[in-house]
Each structure stands twice: as C-alpha cells, then as structure tokens.
Simulated scan of single mutants.
Amino acid sequence: MEQKLSSIETQQAAILAYLQSNHSLSTFEAREKLDVMHPGSRIQELRAKGHNIITYRRTINGHRKVAEYVLLAAIGEVA
C-alpha cells in the first residue's frame, strides 16, 4: 500500500519527484499513485517556487480535458 501524503510540502515534493522521474503526471495519476486529491493547487505552488511546469488538456479513458502536467528543464538543465 502506498503511503498517504498529508502536508502540502510533502505533496509538492512527491509531485516534483514524480515529474522528474516520469516527465508528466495526469490528474488521475496524482490521485491514484500519489494520493494528491487537488494536484492543480500543488502545481500552482510549485510554479510559484520557480518550477517550469506546463499543462496540457487530454482525453484519458473517455474523460475530456484531464490535466496532464509536464516539467520542462530550466536553462542549462537536462530533464
């Protein structure tokens, strides 16, 4: 069983680590794999901290306009 994440900072760290390893994260993945129920809020907070994360809207399993977040590398970094 995966560990539940409670604090905002812990959720941010989990999302960032996931994006760094997998390069993208959908709302469904955040909820199912990371137990983050409101990933959009955590993404906004990470952006405010300077992380370059973009959002695409996708159709996933028949659900339209599902957010998929992608972490872009900063200048001089390799993603």
Rank of each mutant, 00 (worst) to 15 (best):
E29T: 10
H63Y: 06
A17F: 06
H63V: 14
G76R: 01
R58M: 01
P39T: 09
R42Y: 01
S24H: 07
E2F: 15
I15P: 02
V70N: 01
P39A: 07
M37E: 10
G76V: 02
K65W: 01
E45R: 06
Y69L: 00
R42H: 08
I43E: 12
H63W: 07
S41A: 11
H63D: 07
Q3I: 13
E9V: 05
N52G: 00
S21V: 06
K33S: 14
H23Q: 15
A74M: 15
Y56G: 11
A79V: 12
E9P: 05
K33N: 14
R64I: 03
T59K: 02
F28Y: 13
L16W: 04
Q3R: 15
L46T: 00
K65H: 13
K33Y: 05
T55Y: 00
I8S: 14
Y18C: 05
A74C: 13
A30Q: 06
I60L: 09
V66N: 06
R57N: 04
M37H: 06
K65Y: 12
V36A: 04
S6C: 09
A74R: 15
A79W: 12
L72K: 12
I43T: 09
V70W: 02
S26Y: 05
H23W: 04
L34P: 09
T55I: 08
T27M: 11
A67K: 10
V36G: 04
S41N: 14
T27A: 14
K65A: 15
L19R: 02
N22A: 08
V70A: 02
H23A: 08
R57T: 03
G76M: 11
V66R: 12
Q11E: 15
I60E: 01
L71E: 04
P39L: 02
Y69T: 05
R47G: 06
H63F: 05
R58C: 09
E77M: 01
G76K: 00
G62V: 01
I75H: 09
I54S: 12
R58S: 05
L5Q: 07
L71M: 07
A73F: 07
N52R: 13
G50A: 06
V66H: 07
E77I: 02
S41P: 02
L72F: 11
E2V: 15
I75G: 03
L46C: 02
E29N: 11
I54H: 06
E9Y: 01
H63I: 10
L5P: 11
G62F: 02
E32I: 08
H51L: 08
T27Y: 10
V66D: 07
E77P: 10
A30I: 09
E29P: 11
S41V: 08
I15R: 00
L46N: 00
Q20A: 08
F28Q: 10
A48N: 15
R57W: 00
A48Q: 14
E68S: 07
N61P: 01
Q20M: 08
L46H: 03
A14M: 08
R47M: 03
Y56C: 08
Q3M: 13
L72R: 03
Q20S: 12
I43M: 14
R31N: 12
I15A: 03
G62S: 00
N52C: 10
R57A: 09
Q3W: 11
E29V: 10
I43C: 08
I75D: 13
H63M: 05
Q11I: 02
E9T: 10
V78G: 06
A30L: 11
T27W: 06
